[in-house]
Design a protein around this nucleic acid. Sequence first.
DNA 1: GGCTTATCAACAATCGTTGTTGATTAGCAG
DNA 2: CTGCTAATCAACAACGATTGTTGATAAGCC
Lengths: 143, 143
Amino acid sequence: MKTPAELTELFRTRGFKVTPQRQMLFRLLHGNDVHPTAESLYAAASAEMPTISLRTVYQTLSDLESMGEIQQLDMGTGSSRFDPNTDVHHHLVCERCGKVRDLYADFAISVPRGRAQGFTVKNAEVVFRGLCDTCKQGDEHHG
Amino acid sequence: MKTPAELTELFRTRGFKVTPQRQMLFRLLHGNDVHPTAESLYAAASAEMPTISLRTVYQTLSDLESMGEIQQLDMGTGSSRFDPNTDVHHHLVCERCGKVRDLYADFAISVPRGRAQGFTVKNAEVVFRGLCDTCKQGDEHHG
DNA sequence: GGCTTATCAACAATCGTTGTTGATTAGCAG
DNA sequence: CTGCTAATCAACAACGATTGTTGATAAGCC
Ligand SMILES: [Mn+2]
Ligand SMILES: [Mn+2]
Ligand SMILES: [Zn+2]
Ligand SMILES: [Zn+2]
């Protein structure tokens, strides 16, 4: 993801105004690797700016996504996750608590010849599902 | 997935009654590889049994899932897909129309040593995203 | 046959998300 | 600095998918 300064430039270039709300979200997202939900970003933003609205958070995330600066992930954990990392990478997902962690690896996966069934494939993502350390420990007690 | 006859047996064994609604869903799901939504199954079921309710479809799908006879997939296409195929396999997903197709291949993917970040991984799914043939053709006209 | 479960219609409610409106604020080009 | 315009706000409504509820009716199965 671009730095807050770069995003500021980009927004100005595109005719979007650079408001304190947007700048805060630029900061909250930069280097953020926990794949936050809109709600969790709203909570973090509210701590610094109590009057910010959830609607504005959603709106800014949508703007960033359509500019290709973040990606929206649906891991089946109830709500969308927002990922400022737009590079090719994969994910570990906890089936219990919904935690999502990055996994960088080049698995060199591609659809075997003749098996694409007419699809033009753009990318391949691997999702590893299981339990995170925290949830695993909870399990051992109730084994 | 088990055959309708096997599911009938399983349901009886577990004390679930074998109703015409449930039997119809067993049939509609058996060998079904289009990853139907609850709504589409409801539509198909309604054609044969106009009085069946959407509620009953959801309920039976939920029962089958907790018995491990089908799996529920969330591909980020708005609604859940139900997959009677519980073997390890992967998917091609059309970003435009939401079509989901099976892909059988052994990619032999695993989390590289020391990178699991505390996760105990149970399985790995690969999702290939792109455009299906139908949606691809629509694109070419609007270059 | 009778107990128990399933199903039904008909709703209400949930959750995450998007739309709307009208008033207020404020970014930024000139 | 000023004015145009976009952004934000609060306060809702609405959405779509899914689940819950209720009370009545039907039907599976021992
Ligand atoms: Mn990521
Ligand atoms: Mn499948
Ligand atoms: Zn966890
Ligand atoms: Zn398509």
